[in-house]
């Protein structure tokens, strides 16, 4: 017997010695010969679910082309970008479905009446909802994907890693479970404290329902523009562009600088002018305060577009660039499974 053979253990029934059939992720086995049941104390595997890719290459490429034309991307991107490769890929995700329960007590501040008097209303919320947590089970690298929402029409297929490239799981199952549970508990508290100005007490729990390893399909599209290589990823079921990098539009960068600077300056200038012209009357001061607040928001927004607009980042990507679109949150609540109570 070679060294390698020593690590193989054939699975036989401890009471009758017959062969047993079991699969990855199972923890209970029934012997088909003597009908005795026994527990497996192997390293816990995870149940795997794989979803069927329904978007073909042409559709994925068409979506990426449409994405080229959206947002402040280089004007000639659609015309000059050359797709160098497009390939399907399955990415692994840990998914925890659990009921999140939270009790949150606090107060809500309201202003009412003519003199804007502050009123404190005590609030209590009991949250009882089903949540789904999902997190990528390998390093995110430069994929820009951290979480998924599985659409209702997704079709589960048996796990089979023969044809399509599947990225390997590198993160710990137990760590993902723990982080997921914590995230669900926190989300339950957050949902309960929605209307509260201050929270005085909160307690939360999660009751796990299912923990699964999901393999979800994507298209990875790499393209070049001015000899630079960029990419986009397309959801293999909904066909949405999930993440990507794209060259920015210099014209909209400079417009952002002009608009942001001049308008915010003008807003504060108007306020100062009015405040002085009205000798510090409420109207003038009011316009000044509104002007300053508006100016800060405008400067922040337009400066980002100007300074980092050279590259557009879609999805959860690292590095400098203008973030566009929204990043998929890791926790979602299932709305038809809520039994909340608010007072």
């Amino acid at each position: 017997m070679s060294e390698a053979q020593k690590i193989l253990v054939s699975m036989t029934c401890p009471s009758c010695g017959g062969q047993v059939q079991c699969e990855e992720g199972e923890d209970l086995v029934l012997c088909k010969f003597c009908e005795s049941a026994f527990a497996l104390t192997t390293d816990e595997g995870a149940n795997k679910v794989m979803y069927k890719m329904t978007v073909d290459k042409d559709k994925a490429l068409a979506k990426v082309k449409a994405w080229f034309g959206s947002g402040p991307k280089a004007k000639d991107l659609a015309a000059k970008a050359a797709v160098t490769e497009a390939y399907p890929l399955y990415l692994p995700f840990w998914r925890l479905i659990a009921r999140g329960k939270a009790c949150v007590c606090g107060i809500e501040e309201q202003r009412s009446g003519k003199d804007n008097q502050k009123v404190e209303i005590p609030r209590e919320a009991l949250i009882n909802r089903e949540y789904i947590y999902s997190e990528i089970a390998c390093e995110a690298g430069d994929l820009g994907i951290q979480s998924i929402v599985i659409p209702d029409r997704a079709e589960a297929i048996s796990y089979d890693d023969q044809e399509i490239v599947t990225f390997g799981v590198t993160s710990s199952r137990d760590a993902a479970y723990e982080v997921g549970g914590k995230a669900i508990s926190q989300q339950a508290v957050k949902d309960g404290s929605d209307r509260m100005t201050r929270v005085y007490f909160s307690k939360s729990f999660f009751f796990p329902k299912a923990f699964t390893l999901i393999y979800y399909p994507f298209w990875i599209v790499r393209y070049t523009y001015e000899d630079r290589t960029y990419f986009a990823t397309v959801d293999g079921i909904t066909a949405h562009v999930v993440s990507g990098r794209a060259p920015g539009n210099a014209g909209s960068q400079s417009t952002a600088a002009g608009v942001g600077g001049a308008i915010s300056g003008g807003a504060i200038g108007l306020g100062i002018g009015l405040a002085i012209a009205t000798d510090g009357a409420d109207v003038g001061i009011g316009v000044l305060v509104v002007g300053i607040v508006a100016a800060i928001v405008l400067i922040g927004y337009f400066y980002q577009r100007f300074r980092y607009g050279d590259e557009i980042l879609e999805g959860a990507l690292n590095g400098k660039g203008l973030k566009s679109g929204r990043t998929q949150e890791k926790v979602q609540s299932i709305y038809n499974e809520t039994y909340d109570y608010f007072k």
């Binding site: 600088a257 942001g260 300056g265 003008g266 200038g269 100062i272 002018g273 002085i276 100007f306």
Partner: peptide
């Protein structure tokens, strides 16, 4: 970047205040 936006800001500020 800050200088350019600052210039546009100052011109806007003067315009707003003097305009009123």
């Amino acid at each position: 970047y800050i200088a350019v936006m600052g210039l546009a800001f100052v011109l806007g500020l003067l315009g707003g205040a003097l305009g009123i």
